[in-house]
Simulated assay, not measured.
Amino acid sequence: MKTKILLVEDDPDFGMILKQYLELEEFDVTWFQNPEEAVSLLSSDFTFQIGILDIMMPNMDGFSLAKIILKEKPSFPLLFLTAKNQKIDRLTGLKIGADDYISKPCDPEELVLRIRNILKRSIPATLETHINIGSYTLDSEKLLLSHPNGNVRLTVREKDLLLYLLKHNNQTIKRDDILDNLWEANDYFSGRSLDVFISRLRKYFSDDSQIKIQSLRGIGFEIDFPVK
């Protein structure tokens, strides 16, 4: 069965090129030029595996569309297309919950590679489905982190990062190793992305003082998860 992609791009020429190329790569692509049409799908049959959203669109930008989608589909993988090579766009997208970004005009082969990497990371890990971490419980299949004070629905990348840290519990983890294994890139923006996701995990686990994700300057992180 072909992977179903939601493509939202208001530029008719660029959108058509992307759609045709992705279909040649055996993806099933539904393309909207109007982001509001994509929103209308949330109340019907939303069966996509990944979304590709342009940031700069009239009426509704990609960030606003992403927030609406993620509110209904918290674990839905997203990749942003940006025409502006500015870090504020990229960091904003990462904070919202995007899994990746690519600048326009983009190399179609690179786009396909990024899509496949995201989809590969989205496959549930082979670890136990339920993991007790201090006073928290992680359901890795449902992307749910539960605690008596409240639950958090994780994004796919948050889950993948957490599982990676759990696999290296009570160890010093090199920053470069995380970037190479999960981001498959080791540049400035990937590093900032990692910082954003580490900050989120610290916030999620803030109700248990036993859980420690300590930064080691110039090295990486020291992890202490009281796993039961």
Rank of each mutant, 00 (worst) to 15 (best):
P105W: 14
V112M: 06
Q86G: 03
L165K: 05
S140L: 01
Y164W: 09
T126V: 04
I133C: 05
K71G: 06
S135A: 11
Q171E: 15
E72F: 09
E158N: 06
D177Q: 13
S75D: 11
N170S: 06
I118R: 09
E110Y: 11
I131C: 00
S122F: 00
N170C: 01
R153D: 09
P74E: 11
P108Q: 07
L162Y: 02
I102C: 12
L163R: 08
D89A: 05
L161R: 08
D160V: 11
D89K: 09
L81K: 10
P124Y: 06
D99F: 03
G97D: 00
V156D: 05
R175W: 13
L91S: 03
E72P: 08
V156K: 04
A125P: 07
Y136A: 04
Y101E: 05
P148W: 08
V152M: 14
L145T: 01
P108W: 12
L166A: 04
S122P: 01
K73P: 07
E110S: 13
K167H: 12
L78K: 12
D160P: 00
R90T: 07
E158V: 00
D99T: 00
C106M: 15
D160T: 13
V152Q: 13
Y136S: 04
L70D: 12
L163T: 03
H130N: 10
N132V: 07
D176L: 11
L111G: 05
K104C: 12
Q86I: 02
L144T: 02
R153F: 14
L111K: 08
R116N: 13
H130A: 00
K120A: 13
A98I: 07
L78R: 04
R90W: 09
T172G: 09
L70T: 04
P108I: 03
K84F: 14
K87V: 12
I173K: 07
L163K: 06
L138Q: 00
S75P: 03
T82Q: 14
D176K: 15
T172D: 09
I115F: 11
E110V: 15
D89S: 10
L119R: 04
L144F: 10
V112D: 04
T129R: 15
G93T: 06
P74L: 09
R114Y: 09
L154D: 01
S146I: 03
V156A: 08
T82I: 12
V112Q: 06
S146Q: 14
Y136N: 01
L161V: 00
K174P: 04
D89V: 02
P108H: 11
V152N: 12
K120V: 02
Q86C: 03
I131R: 06
L161Y: 01
S146D: 05
S122R: 09
H147C: 08
L162C: 02
L91Q: 14
V152S: 13
T129A: 06
E72W: 04
L166I: 15
S146Y: 08
D107T: 05
N170M: 09
D107K: 14
P77R: 11
K84G: 09
E72K: 15
R116P: 01
I133R: 01
T172I: 15
T129H: 08
